[in-house]
Design a protein around this nucleic acid. Structure first.
Lengths: 196, 196
DNA sequence: TCGCCATTAGAATGATCGTTCTAGCAGTGC
DNA sequence: GCACTGCTAGAACGATCATTCTAATGGCGA
């Protein structure tokens, strides 16, 4: 049964997001997973690092799916962007400012201290950027403009989550969302005047 | 002499930035400060938490001064924004992607786990936002627009540092810098057409 | 029914954590 | 010269860290 294995990944994802990599002990992870430490090392012989790598991959994919679902459910890309920021703000509020980006906390911790995990986080961010850039090119932007704007959108979301989590209010995140919606709007308008 | 005390703060700032709060041991901090643990507890009776609080305050102020110096040295606010992002990118490269935001790593770690330190990081971000918003209102924006744009700029810088540190290249940060420069430019242009 | 293998279970290990403690040193005021 | 104070110095402490280990358990195929 891989149910136990999945429980490890999911509880680790939550703990890493809220307490970071170094701040989350394997004892705590195994306790909250309702499974013994022996099982953890059975499924992840590489120990904490292997668990973290798999956890980041899983959470990164889940978060990407969530964002894509928001875009799909939105009438156009501008309101899609708006809904992403609004959704992130709403989630933050309803989870007592615990549920934010599952990658960022660990990414900052390991960027200079653990090359293997750093590479994992870099790969996840790269996929996110590619996904957003793809939607922007589909909306009519050039590849170059789309890449630039995608980086801006992802960075703004990450930064907004950081500011709002620290402040324990979503003012910043919602402001940034409005800013980003108009930024995408004007970028698309620019294209329209340039091509037509 | 408070030289030892200041050494504690400065080495702690560097270590917390690169490894996070939980990942930085007091033994390591005292070793790299070339001072014994006893001295650390002499200057910071509150232990690790007090050291971290003071370290964050100091680093937050230093980073703010740095940004203000860039703005002062720039001919206008738009090039000031551009120079901030370019400067952050250059620093990142020249320090092997170690020197980024001295607050962000700890802020994400403590946001849900240490209320005292969370409040400290929130206060620092608030000061930063106020400083940037002040410069934007001085440039002619309304208070409301200035606050919104300030949040966007700070968040974009934080997010850009995150993405670039993870990727170990400054492409994202420089892209975002260009994006933000034009965003400020159009915001100011909008004001001009609205008022004149 | 028996043997096999995946998984559970948690005690044991050595290292490191934050913190406390005692002892000594250097300089100042009397 | 003597007490006092600010600081240095690092050993000691109990807790917790990641990891390893042995033993037992469960269910499935033969």
């Amino acid at each position: 049964m891989t149910a136990t294995r999945q429980r490890f990944v999911e509880t680790a994802a939550a703990l890493f997001m809220q307490q970071g990599y170094a701040g989350s002990g394997l004892k705590q992870i195994s306790t909250e997973s309702a499974a013994p430490i022996g099982s953890l090392y059975h499924f992840f012989p590489g120990g904490k690092e292997e668990l973290a790598a798999e956890t980041l991959q899983w959470a990164g994919k889940a978060y990407q799916d969530l964002v894509e679902a928001v875009f799909v459910a939105s009438p156009d890309i501008v309101s899609g962007v708006r809904n992403c920021f609004e959704g992130a703000a709403a989630t933050l509020e309803s989870t007592n400012y615990a549920d934010a980006c599952p990658i960022a906390t660990v990414a900052l911790e390991v960027a200079s201290t653990n090359e293997a995990l750093r590479a994992v986080t870099a790969g996840i961010f790269d996929e996110w950027l590619g996904m957003v850039a793809g939607r922007l090119t589909a909306a009519g932007l050039t590849k170059r403009d789309a890449k630039e704007l995608a980086a801006t959108l992802v960075a703004a979301l990450e930064g907004g989550l950081l500011l709002s989590r620290a402040a324990r209010n979503t003012t910043a995140l919602r402001s940034i969302g409005r800013s980003m919606a108009t930024l995408v709007e004007t970028a698309l308008a620019h294209r329209r005047t340039a091509t037509t």
